[in-house]
Design a binder for these strands. Structure first.
Lengths: 386, 386
DNA sequence: GGGAGTTAGGATGATCGCCGAACAAAGGTG
DNA sequence: CACCTTTGTTCGGCGATCATCCTAACTCCC
């Protein structure tokens, strides 16, 4: 009872009927229920096309908000979206994730309350929370699993924390996964097979297969930072050598530029140098692109995606990076797989992870099961009917 | 109206009710319909457990057969299975696929009629045909797409051929895909994420994600034979160098053994030499295993499967091959991904592709949509009722 | 060997979701 | 102003499912 959430993309009763194939009467019945329970609003009439003008339906965005939390190694970004997917407010603060879950989540809690207050939304309008973390997570329980850069977070029950404070479900996933989700849902809605490559300090990959996130058996899918490139011997912090991350990761590039006597502590510095036209930095980024492309060419053959999106800090200089990536991929991958393949820079920008996390929350809140549950419970703040 | 096909795994009415959560009355009603239309048989009572003994239900295997066709570069294997998945008969003949679709399909047609006759099944009992071919296929239309070793097959409408001759749907897929399907359905039924690695003349990979075949955007997923290994420079027939297939494929190994003065024309000869204890051959297979493992370790990080199955001609010497594969994978892959990872030799044997193709047919024939259609059409040869 | 208890399967009336047809509303068009 | 088009609503009906009750068939134990 509810494929009708297509109202998310705006529709009238008659349109829904045509799209879903349901009888107009049935659609009316269900829409009435949704209106009565405060999920949907009837806005003004739209123009007629020769007959009675339809009444437009829209999600009641004012009363249904969702939060997206992007936790990085040294930052914390919280976004507030309405259930229709519009960004209402964002805030980023520097914050060491190594401070541990209690401190970090308390900060998120404070920030979220501030954002709710600033946008004039009551706490009771929050429907779900999505969280992206920089490490492996068991999605079903929302607990990090041995995350290397998140000391103290192993098995910490993040969803329980938010359930206590807000009484809503929290969905926790790897940050690269939610970025892939944001990119696919917002920039490439028709694409069913998409890879999101994040080239930042480290290198990771979010996988959309058949329109859904692929997390793999243990939820560690997409961990491509430690795939070996060629016969190279660069030492990696993982203990192996020749890892993609140790060759093309932002941290590795910065380190090598420092050895050349340049001022570079992180991937951002590398980007700055490239933008300033430093030839060593440009060469190095292009080289990194080739290394990424070499690994990617294998993944393209294996996975056969329609679209590869390259994001992360280094994607800011995508002219240089993508040139190397494309070069390697088109040289090595099978023509059938590259024939219609698109390799493009990310379009979602710095809010990608926070928005992606929020999308996780939105899709949960709008899932048939959740909506059914809400309807059965007599709605939320239903003006009429119980 | 029909999750009940679990009868495939044998069940009684009461069991079905418990498993599906449906009311016992509802189950009875639907089972009656299936019996009336000849899909299901009521066999003898089973032992009681303290109450009325249940009546066992089983698919009416005598009246519902499915064919699986395995087309190789130089062989053609046709298998006849009943709808329950039991192998009734197989036949393999040498046959050059390069003879073109007309000649090959005519041969399949003759073989299939022979098998039906030999097993005493009428042609009208055939419900579907699955076909595995050694090249890329657009699954939805069942047409090969620029298959390199199948001259004359490009865009040939295989399903139409069988629709004409038998009036049933034919499902055509890449041979590695159907082998992966056979392995997952028969040997690892609980595994949701599985890779099937075929190491034969060439090297390919079938992918099961979330329990279903992953074919990718253009249906070319799993084409890993031309992923580059290290910095090696072996020339490959694809025009590139360092391809996995050119290093570890059976054809490449045979060629190199020939250069050493040994008698080896194909992967089978390599296997024979290894079994005879030839040290060069053993070393070479182990080396090939390491090359395969190096590529596989990347795929394991990326895809995070539960199980990797190694099949194909060279898997006959899996002691040597798997040793190399495991060595490379456990050295290079992330612990989280390899923690519960199993790397095992294929269990399905030489009938894998034919049986997998037949499974494709069985699952089609038992899909709710197909069963509904059959029920609406008044059954097939229903003894009573119309 | 005959009840008591247990489990399987069948029959019946009620309920729920959905559909189709008729109808009312609201606007165009000549 | 009559007539058409399109939208949305009302209402009776149909089919699938469920809960309940009932019968069948068997075990176990006194």
């Amino acid at each position: 009872m509810l494929a009708l959430i297509s109202a998310g993309s705006a529709a009238t009763r008659a349109e829904i009927a045509r799209l879903t194939g349901l009888a107009r009467s049935t659609v009316s019945q269900r829409v009435d229920a949704l209106i009565a329970h405060g999920f949907v609003d009837e806005t003004a009439d739209a123009g007629s096309t020769g007959g009675r003008p339809p009444r437009r339906l829209s999600l009641r965005t004012r009363e249904h908000a969702v939060a997206g939390v992007d936790l990085g190694a040294s930052h914390c970004r919280v976004a507030l979206l309405d259930i229709g997917g519009s960004l209402l407010a964002v805030r980023e603060d520097p914050l060491k994730i190594a401070d541990g879950p209690r401190a970090v989540l308390a900060h998120v809690d404070r920030t979220l309350r501030t954002l709710l207050a600033e946008t004039g939304r009551g706490q009771h309008t929050l429907r779900a929370i999505g969280v992206g973390v920089p490490g492996p997570v068991e999605f079903s329980t929302g607990r990090p699993v041995d995350p290397p850069i998140m000391p103290g977070w192993h098995q910490f029950p993040i969803p329980e924390y938010f359930a206590e404070h807000y009484g809503v479900r929290a969905l926790v996933d790897n940050d690269v996964n939610v970025m892939a989700l944001a990119e696919q849902r917002q920039a490439f809605p028709g694409t069913r097979y998409l890879l999101y490559l994040k080239v930042g300090t480290g290198i990771g990959c979010g996988i959309i297969a058949d329109g859904r996130l692929h997390r793999g058996a243990q939820g560690s899918a997409g961990d491509i930072g430690h795939i070996r490139v060629g016969e190279r011997e660069e030492l990696c912090r993982c203990g192996n050598s020749g890892c993609l991350e140790a060759i093309a990761g932002g941290a590795a590039l910065a380190e090598r530029l420092t050895e050349l006597g340049l001022e570079a502590r992180s991937g951002l510095d590398v980007v700055r140098l490239v933008q300033e036209g430093n030839r060593d930095a440009v060469r190095m980024v292009r080289e990194a692109g080739r290394a990424v492309g070499e690994v990617l060419s294998g993944l393209v053959n294996f996975f056969n995606p329609e679209t590869v999106v390259v994001g992360g800090a280094l994607a800011a200089v995508h002219d240089q990076l993508l040139a190397g990536v494309r070069e390697a991929v088109y040289r090595r991958s099978h023509p059938l797989a590259t024939h219609v393949l698109r390799i493009e820079p990310s379009r979602t920008g710095e809010n990608a992870a926070a928005v992606g996390a929020a999308i996780l929350g939105i899709e949960h809140a709008l899932s048939p099961a959740q909506v059914d549950r809400a309807l059965l419970q007599g709605g939320l703040k239903s003006p009429a009917i119980g």
